[in-house]
Amino acid sequence: MSAPDQTAGEVPEREWPLWEVFVRPARGLSHVHAGSLHAADAQMAIGNARDLYTRRGEGVSIWVVRSADLVASSPDEKDELFDPAGDKVYRHPTFFTASEGVPGL
C-alpha cells in the first residue's frame, strides 16, 4: 500500500486505526477480549496493549486485530441464528430422566 497523498515533510494528521485486543490470561486458557485501543500499526498495537491491558500481570499472550476487520453477527439476526437452539432441549443431558438412579449414567 502506498501513501500517494503525502508530500515530503507533511503528513496529514489522521486518527490511528482502532484495534481490538485479546489477552490470554494464563497458559491453558483462551484469549479473551480485553478492550480496544488506537495504534498506527500492528506492532504498536501490541506494545500499547501490553501497556494498557497487562499492567498487573493479566496476560501471557496478546492478539490484536483491526476492528474494521472483525465481522460480527447483527442483533437483527439474533432470532434466526439462535432461536433454533431454543426448542432442542434434548441436547442437554438433563432432558433424559429414565436413567436417574442408574450408576454411572
Partner: peptide
C-alpha cells in the same frame, strides 16, 4: 503531533515495503 504523524508515516512505509 509530530509523534502521531511520524508513527502514521512509519506504518505506511512499512506497509508499502511489505507490499
Amino acid at each position: 503531533a509530530w509523534v502521531r504523524q511520524a508513527a502514521t508515516a512509519h506504518a505506511a512505509k512499512r506497509a508499502a515495503r511489505r507490499g
